[in-house]
Structures are given as structure tokens and as C-alpha cells.
Write a protein that binds this DNA or RNA. Structure first.
Lengths: 319, 319
DNA sequence: TCGCAATGGTTGTATAGTGCAACCATATTT
DNA sequence: AAATATGGTTGCACTATACAACCATTGCGA
């Protein structure tokens, strides 16, 4: 294990330890209620899923079913939950929150929210998206490492049109990191991306041009642009298409592409073109699924490393 | 509370809940030992600090001193710890790890590290720095919100010279976000930063020029550059000086400035100049502490918002 | 159709970690 | 020298937990 890697791992461990302590997960009771941590988590899960069986809660919380059974009994006695026997399976009791339970949950939520909000007050505003994205990626990776399954929290990613602050930097960064890793590109490539994108954003308002970003919270995790000017009249140039590694494989690329191509079709471009590099198979599949076909290939040395550049072309909708 | 804010808070809460569960903090025993979570945490703290009193451990873990006392008794009986009465205060027992304790701790560390490493395998490589930075900023903010004190994990920030992949994007992004918030700048400003920095990085090798980044792990959290060409011969131009909000106030700015000015003095520039905006008091203090004096002020409208631009000048070392 | 295994849930029992309160020994302040 | 504060221990009660045995219901296969 290389040394920086070791430092990364230890840093993550130290921070999560600290975080767990600060959030009070080692205290017997949680979130300003008189219920134990497991009961609070059960309430939260019930609030999220509506109605669950005891076994489902046990699986979800990683506790023995006997512990869960007793814990639920107390919550029912306290009037937080009701249990109704399932009508299609006499063994199962469906648990759900009572009005009182919903009030309790609301109080728990308010407490937790306030705690987080106060923490957010104590950090630089720019760092908030970072915290969110970091926690989420980590939680998902932990779940995957444990069980192979992908089922975990993923905040929704939305596609938004237009410039927003930081997009030039972020898109440049994503390109720089991705192509350094996958093609060995360096400073010259990153400078080209930065310059081109900076120039393009200055004429984003002109007809035919468009930029879409994928946002997770307020963090930019993907982008695509249509340059309607630089290839000549009637030609749409698809540029700066990239998806952050944190959300790759989640359909974000498809949605970005769809937004960009809907714009192309709506505007009436005769053709959409894009340049890419051989070997990026995931991207190629996306292109071909959207009607792009490989037009031309050539060796390119301009980026510092020798790569095979590929032109993909997609005809516009028949006018 | 605005809606996106709400979504951010809830997203952070969901992710941290998930993370705590995945890490097994709700299990009675932890990290593949037979010791309870609190004992494991105590071992870790002792490993970190070398020798501590029981009270210090209790404070650190947020537990009652009686619980800690008993827990430590067991660890001593198990041969993991030794206790020696302090020589300058008869009440205090100094606790430290025995050889056996260090072995146990090593096993705990190995287990935890493997867990994290496996999780890292399940995420995009680009996201690793993000996870680290996010957790760390959050843990620190939680600690500050709880106790006002700043004492918490902060991974060391190091200053490194030269270009590295992603720096153009990251520095552009940091500038864009910071000045959008503090001066209302928008796309035009961000484009200027991107273009200028991209151009500068292309001639970074030329004599007199220099770029330094502040790195936390592999994440870029600050930058400064000396452009030895654009103001004319003998003049150093300090540009792209910025520190990420996540580490602001931690001396990173000072260290960046020192690196840049050491370069200026070593190279023998007659004068170092920088342009900034009125109102950025923290930065101004840094400049003045390093020998810069305000030279000229003028109103500028070029960035989209009216601001007062300030020229600061620092003479070179007497040749 | 009947029996048997599997599943959902409950209860008995033992264990262990925890906090509170009272306590002792030592140090510090008045 | 007395009062107070601090570090640490012990008695006590509480509670969350796991394990194992158990019951009721369901579903499957012979």
C-alpha cells in the first residue's frame, strides 16, 4: 500500500470516528428523546417506508429480531406505533406510525436537522456541497463493499440548463482528472478545456448554444454543451460531455445527452457532431444508443499523448 | 429555511445515518475484537496520544467517568494497558498501551483500514479525495458547533510547487465561488480566471514564474502564483491567490504567501505587485504582514459589479 | 391431502455496558 | 488550617442486547 493511500485511509478513519462521536452515537439515548438509539432509528425507518414488518426493521438496523421485538413492544405501548396483522399473511404484523409517532419523529428530525444546520453554520458555505457529496459517496461505497448490492442512499441528480458559478472550473477539473487517468493528458489538455469553455460561456446566450449541468444538491457532477457556432451553420457541436466518477453509471450521462439532443432537435440542427477518443466504451455506447455513428478516425498527437480521435455524427430530425 | 437548504441537510443526515450503520457502530462489539466499542475507541485514543488520564479519555469519548473507570479496569486486567501513578499529581493514573495493547490496536487498525480500503475500491478513484475532505470538514464543524472549540482532526495541508492535474479547474472554481459570494461576480469573471490561468500554466516553466498549491491529501485547497512576465521585467505579479473555505483560517494562506514570496526574493525581483479588491480584510492582513503596502485604488466595473480595486506593492530584498 | 421445513414473531434467561450517587485520596485555593 | 475542586473507584439500578426455545402461520413436496 503506497504511502499517500495510507494517509488517505487513516484520514478517513479518523474523521469518521470523530463524526460518530460528535453525533452522539455512543450515547445510550439519541436525538433528545427518551428512546434508545435503535428505537429512534426504527422510527426514522418507519417514517421513510411507511409500513414495515418487524423482520424488515431488524434487517435494516442490523439487530436481532428479539431485540427488535421488545423495542417495538415498548414503542407500541408508548403509543408511537400501531400494529395490524397483515391480511394476506397471518404471521406478519404491519407496523406504522401513529399520529403521536409522527409527532415524535418530527421532533427527532427537527433535532437532527438543527444539529446539522448548526454544523453547517460552522463551515465555509462553499464546503457544504462537498460534505454532502463526500458522505453520500462514502456511505454508498461502504454498503456496496459489505453486500455487493447497490441499494443505498443516492441523492437525486437533476439536469439544469445554463451557466452557474463554478461550472467552468468544475468542468475543467473533471476533464483534467478523467483524461489524465484514462489517456495520460496533462497541462496542455486542461488548458485547452479551460480556455475553450471560458470562451464558450461568454457566448452561451447566442441562439443555438446551450449548456447543461448535472447537479447533486448544489454540486456539479456532470456537464454537456452544444456549441451551435464553431462548426459552421446548421451544425451542432456536442462538447464538454463528462460525468463525475462519483455518480458514473447512474444514468446521469444518458440524461445529459438527452437534454442536449432534445435541444438540437428542437432547434433544427441538420447534424450533431462530437469528437471523442477511442477506448472510452461507456461513452461510445451512450452515443450509439442515441443515434450517433462513427464517422472518421485519426491519430492525434496534439494532447501530449498519442490517441485515436473519433468523430461521431448524428443526423438531425427530418425537417 | 429555504428548500435546497432543507434538501442538503436531509441528505447529509441520511448519509451519515447510513454510514454509521455500515461502519457497525450500533453493534455491541467493534472491529473484530471482543471489546466493546468504547474500549476500542479508548485503545485508539491511547495509541494516538501515547499516555492519558482516565478523565481525559472520558472527555474524549463523551462517557461518564465511572463507565470509563470500569472499562479501563478490564483492559488493564486483560493486559492491554498499564497504569502508573503520575509523579507530580498523586490522583492521576497515567494509562498507556502495553506491548500486547499495541498489538491489539494494530489488529483493530488493520481491520478498520481494510474496511475503508474495500469501500474505496467501490468508488470512483476521483471521488476519494472528496470523501476524505467531506468527512473531515463535517467532523470539524460538528465539533465546533458543539463546543465552540476548534480542536479536532485536521489533516495536514502541504504546499507543493508546480502544475498538477486539475489545478486549473479547481483554482478557477474556487475563484468563481468565492468572488460570486463576496463580490457578486459571475460568468465573465470566472471566464477571465480560467483563460488567464490556462495561459499562464502553458508558460509556467519559463524563468521567474511559479505556481504553488496547498494540498490536503490529494485535494487542492489553495493556490498562489507568481507571474514574472506579464508586468514587465523585474516585476513579480502575485496572482490566483485563494484558499478554500474548508481550510480558511488555518494558516494555509500564510504558508502559500511565504512560498511565493520566498521565490520572489530568491529570484531577485525588484518588486512584487498584486491586485485585489477592497473589503477582503483577511487577505489584506496577510499582505500587510508580509510587507505589502497599499499603492493605488480605483473603481472597477469590468467584472460585472462595481468594486474598488486595490494595488498592493512589496519591494524586493535589497540587492 | 398431509407432513415438514421455513418464516415472522414472542418470551425466558443471562450478560454487559451505562449513568447516578456516594465515596476516598490528593491537590489547590482561601 | 479549612474548604473546595479534581481524579478515580465502588454500589446500585437500569436497560439494551444476544441466544435459545418456543408458538403460529405459511408454503412446499411427497
Amino acid at each position: 500500500m503506497a504511502d499517500p493511500e495510507q494517509a488517505l485511509v487513516d484520514g478517513i478513519r479518523a474523521a469518521s470516528r470523530q463524526m460518530v462521536r460528535e453525533l452522539g452515537f455512543m450515547q445510550a439515548t439519541l436525538a433528545a428523546t427518551d428512546y434508545p438509539a435503535s428505537a429512534v432509528h426504527a422510527l426514522i425507518e418507519l417514517g421513510k417506508h411507511g409500513s414495515m414488518s418487524a423482520a424488515a426493521i431488524a434487517a435494516c438496523l442490523g439487530l436481532d429480531k428479539s431485540s427488535v421485538s421488545r423495542m417495538l413492544r415498548k414503542l407500541v405501548d408508548a403509543g408511537e406505533l400501531t400494529e395490524t396483522v397483515s391480511d394476506h399473511d397471518g404471521r406478519i404484523k404491519n407496523l406504522s406510525l401513529t399520529a403521536r409517532g409522527r409527532r415524535t419523529l418530527a421532533a427527532v428530525e427537527a433535532y437532527g436537522r438543527r444539529q446539522v444546520e448548526e454544523a453547517l453554520q460552522h463551515m465555509a458555505p462553499e464546503a457544504r456541497g462537498l460534505v454532502h457529496a463526500g458522505l453520500e459517496v462514502y456511505a454508498r461505497a461502504l454498503a456496496q463493499a459489505r453486500s455487493g448490492a447497490a441499494g443505498a442512499v443516492i441523492s437525486p441528480v437533476r439536469i439544469c440548463p445554463g451557466y452557474r458559478v463554478g461550472v467552468i472550473g468544475r468542468v475543467t477539473e473533471m476533464h483534467g482528472l478523467f483524461y489524465a487517468r484514462h489517456a495520460g493528458f496533462g497541462q496542455y489538455f486542461e488548458s485547452q478545456v479551460a480556455t475553450g469553455l471560458a470562451e464558450f460561456c461568454g457566448r452561451l446566450q447566442r441562439p443555438g448554444n446551450g449548456l447543461w449541468v448535472a447537479l447533486q444538491g448544489e454540486r456539479i457532477v456532470g456537464s454537456v454543451a452544444i456549441d451551435g457556432e464553431d462548426l459552421g451553420s446548421g451544425l451542432a457541436h456536442l462538447r464538454w460531455f463528462i460525468v463525475d466518477g462519483a455518480v458514473r453509471g447512474g444514468g446521469v450521462g444518458q440524461r445529459l445527452l438527452q437534454a442536449a439532443l432534445a435541444h438540437c432537435d428542437g432547434y433544427g440542427f441538420a447534424e450533431t457532431r462530437l469528437w471523442t477518443f477511442a477506448g472510452l466504451e461507456a461513452a461510445r455506447h451512450l452515443y450509439e444508443a442515441r443515434g450517433f455513428v462513427l464517422g472518421e478516425e485519426r491519430q492525434g498527437r496534439q494532447w501530449g499523448e498519442t490517441v485515436t480521435e473519433q468523430l461521431f455524427v448524428r443526423p438531425g430530425v427530418a425537417g
